[in-house]
């Protein structure tokens, strides 16, 4: 088998969110035939786009190697994205690079040159100096914090299997008369993980809030689990989704504390 290596290093342009998501869908085998054809033609005509494509391949590879994909996403990456020997070898390279980077980071933590009281010794000295009531109150507070953290940790990661969906904002405020994207929710899914592509002008916000609106107009806030410059990811428990159409409304928080609704909606349907 001849070696396939990089022959061409081309400039990576900063493409739009929608294009980046299109590349991701293609790489994970989630795009349709027409979308495939459009993207493949661009790969044959636009060298810079090829560079961007490679950068996204790197990103997906790194995320896989770092264990960032779970459940169906992971299956999709392993069953489709890593089908070719080239990609599997690339994953080996990424794993080695990430391991090397982490190992170097650990090595840079150095011991102090001069012997001084350890943190434990300092803590013991401080603790012994306090009165009994204060020690009791501090112990109780630590227990409460530990239990709360354990609860939060448990609450944040109860889901194992997700129905995945990626949505772009639609100008329509209501689901009626609009082509809705179906959420592929199965009885095995604990929750829906929905990627909301951010509109291009939304980089003015420091944080976001997302609201789920059902067909009866009932509203509830949904949890944002990830965000970057291009998209926010929300998780909605499967128990909160019955058959019908839904809209997600996005709110942006500005640095001055003001919140504003980003016009349009992310529309989907549970069938």
């Amino acid at each position: 088998m001849p070696l396939v290596i990089a022959a061409l290093v081309v400039g990576v342009t900063n493409i739009k969110n929608s294009e980046k998501n299109e590349i991701k869908r293609y790489l994970l085998g989630l795009s349709g035939e027409a979308e495939d054809e459009r993207l493949e033609l661009r790969l044959l005509m636009d060298a810079a786009f090829g560079g961007e494509f490679d950068a996204i391949v790197d990103e997906i590879t790194d995320q896989h190697v770092s264990g960032e994909f779970q459940g169906e996403e992971r299956e999709q990456v392993e069953g489709y994205f890593l089908k070719s020997p080239e990609r599997r070898a690339k994953a080996q390279f990424a794993a080695a690079l990430i391991d090397h980077a982490s190992a170097r980071e650990k090595k840079t933590v150095r011991l102090p040159a001069v012997a001084s009281p350890t943190l434990r010794e300092r803590w013991r000295a401080f603790w012994s100096a306090q009165n009994v009531a204060l020690r009791f109150a501090a112990t109780a507070a630590i227990v409460v914090i530990a239990v709360s953290l354990a609860y939060l940790n448990f609450r944040d990661k109860p889901y194992k299997s997700f129905a995945l969906l990626e949505l772009t904002i639609s100008n329509s405020e209501r689901a009626e008369g609009t082509q809705l994207k179906p959420l592929p929710l199965t009885p095995q899914n604990d929750a829906a993980k929905i990627f909301l592509d951010l509109p291009d002008q939304s980089n003015q916000y420091t944080s976001y809030q997302v609201e789920l609106v059902d067909r009866n107009g009932a509203r509830r806030n949904v949890e944002i689990t990830e965000r970057n410059q291009r998209a926010v990811t929300v998780i909605i428990p499967a128990s909160a989704l019955t058959r019908g159409s839904y809209a997600l409304h996005l709110f942006g928080n500005k640095s001055d504390g003001k919140q504003e609704r980003i016009p349009g909606s992310y529309l989907f349907v549970v069938q």
């Binding site: 088998m1 396939v4 290596i5 490679d54 080239e86």
Partner: peptide, 16 residues
């Protein structure tokens, strides 16, 4: 031992 293909996301000169 013949090497397995390894490359940059498919950008290859391979057997070009």
């Amino acid at each position: 031992v013949a090497p397995n293909a390894i490359g940059n996301s498919g950008v290859g000169r391979g057997g070009n």
